[in-house]
Simulated scan of single mutants.
Amino acid sequence: MKTAIVTGASSGIGKAISHQLKNEGYDVLGLSRRGPEIFCDITDTKALEHHITKILKTHEIHLLVNCAGLGIFRPHEELSLQKIETLIDTNLKAPILLANLCLRSLKKTQGHIINVASIEATKHSKFSALYSATKAGLRSFSLCLFEELRNAKVRVTNINPDLTQTPFFDTLAFEPTKQKETVIDPDDLATQIVEIIHAPYVVTDITIQPQKFAIIKKPQPSKKHK
């Protein structure tokens, strides 16, 4: 049985891909800060190293899927240093560390690393400087790592999804509409990822978008004048 490590496995894209991988016969080891998966704060380097080292004692890794991600879309000067560090640690640092920890095993199995970046990795948007920087960094890391690993027959795929119906938007000031043509279903995205895993070639970088673009701006609490 092949083993997959999936971050962010308790919801959204991570949950959808974990479900489909189980249907494909994978032993899925999900890392999450909530849910029935292995409890692990991926922003905690020592905890991450501890959990992966423990897993590697009993498993060879065939697939690493980095799905966990956070979003903040606000003027950069309004961000606290703690939020900046948390976003970088979650979106960029953790996938880099996980690749480092799992790579020897992935070379043995001639495995696959899939990094879920974002459409924002490919463009420049207002109030997205920090988020886009982390996702563009992840995309660049993925593409460079493939060049490093291709002769070792380790696949590396970077995926740039556009608006996807997940809890990602719960804390944001906007969200996708409910119209099918304006948002990606996480199960459909997971199906695409499974197809990429089974492809006889390497998909190194792919952007997935709904046909139409539309968002809903959430009502904001009114500011009281002092």
Rank of each mutant, 00 (worst) to 15 (best):
E77I: 03
I114D: 04
E85A: 10
T122G: 00
T122F: 01
L64T: 06
N100K: 09
T109P: 06
K93E: 08
L81N: 10
F146S: 09
L138D: 12
T134Y: 11
S132D: 04
F127D: 10
E60I: 02
D89L: 12
H62Y: 11
I119V: 01
E77Y: 08
I96D: 06
T134R: 08
L101Y: 10
T90I: 04
H50S: 15
L138W: 09
L64P: 11
K54Q: 15
L63F: 10
G111V: 02
L149W: 04
L149E: 05
K83L: 05
L63W: 06
L138H: 09
A47F: 13
A136Y: 01
C67R: 11
I119A: 01
S105A: 05
N151P: 12
T109R: 03
D89Q: 14
R139L: 13
L92H: 07
K57G: 15
V65Y: 12
L56Y: 12
R150G: 07
L92D: 09
G69M: 06
V65F: 13
A129P: 08
S125R: 00
N91A: 10
H51P: 12
L70K: 09
L87A: 09
E60Y: 09
S80V: 03
G137D: 12
T122P: 00
L138V: 06
I114H: 04
K108T: 02
Q82Y: 13
L143I: 13
C67W: 11
H124Q: 05
R139G: 09
E78N: 05
L79Q: 01
T122E: 00
K108M: 02
R155G: 10
L101R: 02
G71Q: 11
L143H: 13
K46I: 14
I52Q: 15
P95S: 08
E77F: 05
E78T: 06
P75I: 00
K108Y: 00
I119Q: 04
I55H: 15
S125C: 02
V65A: 12
K93S: 08
P75E: 03
K93F: 07
K135T: 00
L149T: 04
R74L: 03
N66D: 13
R150W: 05
G71I: 05
T90P: 09
H51A: 15
L97I: 12
A117E: 09
S140Q: 13
S105I: 00
E85G: 05
E78C: 01
Q82V: 11
S128V: 01
T58Y: 13
T90Q: 06
K108L: 05
G69A: 11
T86V: 08
K93L: 08
L97G: 08
R104K: 14
E78R: 02
T53I: 12
F146Y: 14
P95A: 07
I119Y: 03
A133G: 08
I84Y: 05
V65D: 12
L92R: 06
F146V: 02
K135C: 01
T134F: 11
A152T: 07
T53G: 15
A121G: 10
Q82W: 11
F73M: 03
